[in-house]
Design a protein around this nucleic acid. Structure first.
Length: 435
RNA sequence: GUGCCUAUGGUGUAAUGGUUAGCACAGAGGUUUGUGGAGCCUCUAGUUCCGGUUCAAAUCCGGAUAGGCACACCA
C-alpha cells in the first residue's frame, strides 16, 4: 500500500459511534414492531404526530431541566450557522408539548391523544440495547388530569408489550405528588439523608446535591437500609393527588394488571408529577437468582406546560418505549411488517431477447400484485434454478428465446418438476390460481 | 463520564517475535446461454490507526479509534 492509498483509506467515512446503518431483516424487524404498536395505539384512539428531529435547544432545557444528565451531558446541542442554539431531541415529551402549545390544541376537544415514532439522540456510551441514535415509540395524553388517562397509557403500553411477546409483566407504580408537595417532600428527603451522610455511598453524596429523588433509587448495598425509614412521597400527597392515585390503582385492578406500589420509584426527569411507573420483567440470572429488569416507564407531567412558558396548565401523561432496548430481550418477537411479500415464483430469464421483454412481464405481474424473485445478473438456467431451490420458492417462471418468440413462459413446479407452457396474457391469472 | 475485555479480506477464522499472512464462505469473470444446490480455472480483498521496543512485530509495549460487557444515568 503506498502513501496515497493509505491516505484514501484513512478518509473513508464511517458511521459515528453508537449510530448504525439499519438494513434488510433488521430494518423490517423495526418496522414490524412499529406497525404493531401503531395498530394498537390506533385501536385505543391515539392519533399520529411527527415532530422535527431538530428543535430549539430551550425546548428541552426548559422541560427536562438543567442539572440532569440528559441535558448537561447527553444532548447533542450546537449552534446553527445563523447562531441559533439547536438540539437533536433527546426524548419526545417536550417536543409533543411544544407542538400542543404551538398549534393551540388546548382549544380542541380534550384530551389530545398522540402517538409518535422515530429516532432520538443521546450522547452516551453505547452498550447492549443502548445507542446514541435510538428509536422510541411514544404515547401521550394531553389536556386531562383524569386518572383514566394514566390508566389508559399503562393499558396501551402493556398491551403493546404483551403483543411483542412479553409475559408476566409487573407495573411498579408510585405517586410523586403535585408540584408543591413534591418540593416539601424533596426537602424532607434531603434532611433525612443529610443526617446519615456517613452511611451513604459515593454516588449518593453527589445525588443529594444534584438529584435527591434518585437517592431512593440507589442500588448500592450500603444504602439499602436507609431506604426503609426514608420519607415516602405518598405521605406528602394532597387529598386530590391521593384520590387520583387511588383511582389509578383501581383501574389497574379492574383491568387485571399486576402492579406494585413502589415507594422508592422515582424518575429522573424534572417534569414528572403524580403518577410515575415502570414496567418490570422478572428474570432469573445464571445463578438461578431472580433479577428485576426495567423494560420501560413513564408518568404524569402536569407541570411541564408551565415550565415551557404556557400560561395555562396542561395536565398530561405519557410513556415512551425504547425499541432497541425492547429488541434485546429474547422474548421479543420478530414481527413481519405488512408490506413484506414472500414471492412464490422465481423469474428465470435466458438470453437477451427474453431479458428485453422480461421487465415488461414483471411490471404486469406487479400490477396484478404478484411479487417475484429474480436475479438479473445470472445467465445460466442451472444457476438460476439452483438459486430458486435454495430460496425454497415453489414455482419458477422460465423465459427464454423460444418463449419470447411465442409470447409464452414455462411455469415449473419445483417440487414435482412438472412444467406448463402458459401464454403471457394469461400468466397473472395462472399464477393467482396456483396453490 | 468510569472500569474490564476485544480488534486479521465483505463474513467466519489460522499463523512459537522469524517464509511472500494461510483457509473456508461470499463476490466478479470464465468454463458450449435451456432444466436442480456440482466441478474446474482466473481474479478481487486483510493484520483498525499512530507511535515505541527489536536484526525482525499480526504477535510485545504505549496511545488513539471502534466494538462488547458492566457501573453512573437513562429508554
Amino acid at each position: 500500500m503506498n502513501d496515497q492509498e493509505k491516505q484514501t483509506k484513512k478518509e473513508t467515512p464511517m458511521t459515528l459511534k453508537g449510530m448504525h446503518d439499519v438494513m434488510d431483516d433488521t430494518y423490517y424487524a423495526y418496522q414490524g414492531l412499529f406497525e404493531k404498536a401503531q395498530e394498537i395505539a390506533i385501536y385505543y384512539g391515539f392519533k399520529p404526530i411527527e415532530t422535527p428531529v431538530l428543535e430549539r435547544e430551550d425546548v428541552f432545557v426548559s422541560a427536562i431541566g438543567e442539572g440532569t444528565d440528559v441535558i448537561d451531558k447527553e444532548m447533542y446541542a450546537f449552534r446553527s450557522k445563523g447562531g441559533e442554539r439547536l438540539a437533536l431531541r433527546p426524548e419526545y415529551t417536550s417536543s409533543i408539548m411544544r407542538a400542543y402549545l404551538e398549534h393551540g390544541m388546548l382549544s380542541q376537544p380534550q384530551p389530545i391523544m398522540l402517538y409518535s415514532y422515530g429516532p432520538v439522540f443521546r450522547h452516551e456510551n453505547p452498550q447492549r440495547g443502548r445507542l446514541r441514535q435510538f428509536r422510541q415509540f411514544n404515547l401521550e395524553i394531553l389536556g386531562t388530569s383524569k386518572s383514566i388517562a394514566d390508566a389508559l397509557i399503562i393499558r396501551t403500553l402493556t398491551t403493546i408489550l404483551e403483543e411483542y411477546g412479553f409475559k408476566d409483566l409487573i407495573v411498579d407504580i408510585n405517586s410523586m405528588g403535585d408540584k408543591d408537595t413534591r418540593q416539601s417532600f424533596i426537602k424532607e428527603l434531603v434532611n433525612y439523608y443529610k443526617k446519615h451522610l456517613d452511611q451513604l455511598c459515593k454516588d449518593c453524596h453527589e445525588r443529594i446535591k444534584t438529584n435527591p429523588l434518585r437517592l431512593l433509587d440507589c442500588k448500592q448495598l450500603q444504602c439499602q437500609p436507609l431506604k426503609d425509614n426514608a420519607p415516602s412521597s405518598l405521605s406528602h400527597l394532597s387529598n386530590e393527588a391521593r384520590s387520583h392515585f387511588k383511582e389509578v390503582l383501581q383501574y389497574l385492578e379492574e383491568m387485571g394488571i399486576t402492579y406494585r406500589i413502589n415507594n422508592s420509584l422515582v424518575r429522573g426527569l424534572d417534569y414528572y408529577t403524580r403518577t410515575v411507573f415502570e414496567v418490570i420483567k422478572v428474570d432469573t440470572d445464571e445463578n438461578g437468582k431472580e433479577k428485576e429488569i426495567t423494560i420501560t416507564g413513564g408518568g404524569r407531567y402536569d407541570g411541564l406546560a408551565k415550565m415551557m412558558g404556557s400560561k395555562k396548565e396542561v395536565p398530561a401523561v405519557g410513556t415512551g418505549i425504547g425499541i432497541e432496548r425492547i429488541m434485546m430481550f429474547p422474548e421479543c418477537k420478530v414481527l413481519a411488517p405488512r408490506i413484506m411479500k414472500t414471492p412464490k415464483v422465481y423469474f428465470i430469464q435466458l438470453g437477451f431477447e427474453a431479458k428485453l421483454k422480461s421487465l415488461c412481464i414483471m411490471e404486469t405481474l406487479r400490477k396484478n400484485r404478484i411479487p417475484v424473485y429474480q436475479s438479473i445478473s445470472k445467465d445460466s438456467l442451472g444457476t438460476q434454478l439452483a438459486q430458486a431451490e435454495k430460496m425454497e420458492v415453489p414455482y419458477c417462471i422460465i423465459f427464454g428465446q423460444k418463449e419470447a418468440m411465442d409470447n409464452t413462459v414455462i411455469v415449473r413446479n419445483m417440487q414435482t418438476r412438472s412444467q406448463d407452457t402458459v401464454k403471457i396474457d394469461a400468466l397473472s391469472d395462472y399464477i393467482k390460481h396456483l396453490k
